[in-house]
Design a protein around this nucleic acid. Sequence first.
RNA 1: GGUGGAAUGGCCGAGAGGCGAGGCAAGGGACUGCAAAUCCCUCUACACGGGUUCAAAUCCCGUUUCCACCUCCA
Length: 472
Amino acid sequence: MALHLYDTARRGTRAFVPLIPGEVSMYVCGATVQGLPHVGHLRAGVVFDVLSRWLLESGFKVTLVRNVTDIDDKILARAMEEGRPWWAVAAHYERAFSAAYDALGVLPPTIEPRATGHVTQMVELMQRLIDAGHAYAVDGDVYFDVRSFSEYGALSGQRPDSIEPAADSDFASRKRDPRDFALWKGSKPGEPAWPTPWGAGRPGWHLECSAMATNYLGATFDIHGGGLDLQFPHHENEIAQSHAVGDGFAQYWLHNAWVTQAGEKMSKSLGNTMVVQEVLKRIRGIELRWYLVSAHYRSNIEFSDEALQESGAAFRRIENFVVRATERMGDVDPHATPMCADFALAMDDDLGAPAAVAAIHELVTEGNTLLAQGSAANAATLRGVLASVRRCLGVLGVDPLAEPWATRHSGGDDYREAVDVLVQSELHERQEARSAKDFARADAIRNKLAHAGIAIEDTAEGPRWVLAREAE
RNA sequence: GGUGGAAUGGCCGAGAGGCGAGGCAAGGGACUGCAAAUCCCUCUACACGGGUUCAAAUCCCGUUUCCACCUCCA
């Protein structure tokens, strides 16, 4: 089975056929940099990172554009609050998002364009819309004429009649129809402004995505992704802007579901504290990523510390296998083995992460059994299982021995080696005590190490040690 | 009011007409000097009421509850 994806626009799962064989062009709505990133923001980043990795794994050449909206009403409001320029606010939170993406191992997109860098493209698009009779300028504002575009509402299944007036209803008097939305907002004194043929002003919210997607990916491209909430009005308006001028725009619309908390949507307006940098004090980045990645992207995740810890424990079982098997077999090349068929089948079915995760668990059980048997005869099989597990984990971005995790893990290599020398000598002493049936002494050593946060595992090859924090 | 989702075992969480994913927890067993780690086994569910069918968690009708979007949101 080849890759199938759920296309919001068609309300169904269908085979993914790229415009150009072997190549995929994808645009993902990134952050409006107006606050600290929370777990929900990162879910979108992680979901489309996994899609991108799976496409790469499947042999496609991927061009991924993930924008940064760095000019917006909320950013201006935030700048007032924080008493510093809007561009300082935008830059500050953009760095916070980058750090968070990084902490979760999200691969950098091909390009991360900023809205403010693409005013030229926006002006061009507005001119095309005005020329085509789908937009009009009034007193320095430019609006999209919703009534001129019969397709409006198709993506979100809204009938134009039942759509409530757009947000900027304070401009209602200038609009031909209350549902018309602003492409461009004439600037008020003190606000940032860029020159246009219709006067100085700043971009409306939706325009930048149409302009940037088209600029980098062309008039027609393969996939457009984003959070579920963006379906309306944001993506609806993007479609309007682009289709109205005859651009094909996105062929597949993908939307990821929410991270909710106690049944409530995790929105910044609720002011909750699930910001990524806080959560990362309680759990490692790789475990947080596993938590986000092991759910289906179209299912809600109800965020809780218990669920997070439980998910972390499940991941550690897998991680332990990878580490132990690597200790036994040495490093393996994940791509030296064929892709696990069950995993591939699951991923091809609209990124069925839960079934894919189940396939990994089954591989790990098989691998653990081989590990427990410990005979040299099945070394080749074990090597294959290890490679296969790592190849699957790599698609989800959680192979502990791949970047960025490998480097982070070995960041303390010097210390680890020093500790290892000391612990090995303790373990040696304990083995001697055990041989001499002096179990009191053996247990005392074990307790001493446990007290230091080091857990001993007795394996067929003799004892090994792990930090209790990693094994708990 | 409009649009779209969801209700699964102690918990998390898939599946989508027949053979009851996977994980966590719990109990039992193997291994161990004892543990830990690991493996094996057990517990076995589809909100409610009707209907279709040889067969329904899965399809149809109705009911209840919850959620999201229609306003800024990933």
